[in-house]
Design a protein around this nucleic acid. Sequence first.
DNA 1: GTCAGTGCAAAGCTTTTGCAGCGCG
DNA 2: CGCGCTGCAAAAGCTTTGCACTGAC
Lengths: 149, 149
Amino acid sequence: MEWSEHARRELNRAGHRTGGARDAVVELLAGQDCCLSAQDIHDRLRGGERAVGLASVYRALEVLTQLGLTRRVDVGGTAAYEPASPGGEHHHHAICDRCGKLDAFEDEQLEALIDGVAERLGYAIGEHEIVLRGACPDCAGERSIHVER
Amino acid sequence: MEWSEHARRELNRAGHRTGGARDAVVELLAGQDCCLSAQDIHDRLRGGERAVGLASVYRALEVLTQLGLTRRVDVGGTAAYEPASPGGEHHHHAICDRCGKLDAFEDEQLEALIDGVAERLGYAIGEHEIVLRGACPDCAGERSIHVER
DNA sequence: GTCAGTGCAAAGCTTTTGCAGCGCG
DNA sequence: CGCGCTGCAAAAGCTTTGCACTGAC
């Protein structure tokens, strides 16, 4: 649990008070490597010891994202959030059209290439997001066995 | 105007009748290289000779996208659509956080690298989307001149 | 004549906002 | 003890759906 430390410190440094709701969101996110939607977070916290209003989840995520502590990922209409590693490394996502599974991947070359493109465009890029959509290994396999549909 | 031909033929081939609303959407999209939201399309058509209900715009876009004739792009919460070149080439987008400007770019190496990643993951990728967010050349320049804020 | 296509209005979702009360510092 | 944090409920988008009607084939 190192990220939660970092997050709490940064929140404090930015002049935010410690509140029960935001703290619960931070703690939940700390134990999560990949992305969760606001609704997901709200649901999981409701089951736990500290329930948090949905609006507070959104507000917490807004602050965290603004401080660069979380990364917002747009996967198909709804926003999802994941802790951002302080180091700056990050991953991207592949989503299965069939079963909805979401896999993460990283690729250094890809990052380098993106930086190159950004430079070519003259953009000072702060963020980038890559989403792959298709059939995951399981579903792709199935399709070739069951011919129907 | 080559894409509209292609689109109409494909729609027909898929068993769809020719309707005024969808046809107007196709025609508008044909003259558009980059992405438009459903609302944009609705607004532009309202000004033109054939107004189209917003719901029909959505329905048209759904069919077109399902047939692979248009590409859906998720740029920050709202969906936008653009004609998909029959050849398969496509571009990606860079969005300025400051002024909202949207630029398109393409990069062959990037495409190749993505294919490699997809293979490594075992995914049969049908689509992918890359979004860059940051300061466009104009806004990045401004920031370095005006120090304030 | 039949049934897909269409427009309008209503419903559904996600996300944001207003407001009153609570509690950290 | 003030002001930020929180929860609830209402509001504000965007998108989908229901239904009656029109028009293509």
